[in-house]
Write a protein that binds this DNA or RNA. Structure first.
Lengths: 163, 163
DNA sequence: CTGCAAATGTTATAATGTTGCAAATTTTGC
DNA sequence: GCAAAATTTGCAACATTATAACATTTGCAG
């Protein structure tokens, strides 16, 4: 799984997408899971930007290219991608974003810019540790952590010409 | 704002509710905000257990006592209660829970039991600090933090007779 | 090629949340 | 007090997000 550029900085985004797709193919191969055309296309849509995409946005994008899909098609593809850790669901936005650390067995934390919509996924051992300690202090067994920080990204803080 | 018992342990829950209501009245008084009958009733419903309540659950409860309300009534009451920090929204459940630290200016973190549904709100300086540090490391300005941990609570871990 | 399992298509519907405007109520300025 | 203004509530319609149920197609193993 290759290292990628920060979404805030200008970067060759096509490379992001192709890395993500290559990683996804590899992960699915390892698990004997089928990255079918629909699933791959949905993943590609999600990776087209660093902004999360709603299920119905994806539905519309499929529709725009002639594939007249219904909601279950999209949700099933998303379920598959979630299952193999290829995308994350952002609960506070009801939207989905490509996983920047696919296959790495991590707890994602997300920095969500309210101005430009860009989401940065962090791998945060320190935060995870703090969360686990807090849970342990209550004798609580944590299974899934939802950690989403809404705020303003450095790019929008700096210049005011937000995308 | 008075200290309260842990939801996991048996406790006089009526006391929880009356404390919460008393605190709410005081907070509203301080802010010149009107805790109208509907708002107070909604808060009371939410505090009837330590399990989060959906907006439409509240709607049904209002209906059950003869108040034939429509969704906006409930959502407006919830918006009000959220605004003054009297309830929290659990994004991963689309549900609402009474704030255990009303008026304390905190970032809530929630331990959500998948078996019994009970939610414990933590005041977690260590976790908040870790989150803020992680955001700062990316030059990100955090404004709102959603931190929800799904898992199994100590009571459900211990005995298997979950409520 | 046949039969099974997985994936997709299709229709309908459930669950959650919002908009916009009218009516009622409360507050405020006089 | 009383009228104007602001806030709150009622109400109807609608928008968005997600799932259920069942039919059909596709991929694959034997």
């Amino acid at each position: 799984m290759t290292e990628r550029a920060l979404p805030y900085r200008p970067h060759n985004h096509d490379a992001c997408v192709s890395h993500a797709l290559a990683d996804a193919r590899e992960i699915c191969r390892q698990h004997n899971a089928r990255l079918t055309p629909i699933r791959e296309r949905v993943l590609e849509f999600i990776w087209q930007s660093h902004k999360p995409l709603g299920a119905y946005d994806i539905l519309a994008m499929l529709g725009a290219e002639g594939h007249n899909a219904a909601p279950p098609t999209v949700y099933r593809a998303l379920d598959f991608l979630l299952q193999y850790g290829l995308v994350h669901r952002i609960a506070s936005l009801n939207a989905f974003i490509g996983c920047a650390h696919a296959g790495e067995h991590h707890r994602g934390a997300f920095l969500i810019c309210r101005q430009c919509g860009t989401v940065l996924e962090l791998a945060t051992p320190a935060v995870s540790k703090a969360v686990e300690d807090a849970a342990a202090a209550e004798a609580f067994l944590p299974e899934e952590v939802t950690l989403e920080v809404a705020g303003v990204c450095p790019r929008c803080l700096g210049d005011n010409s937000n995308a």
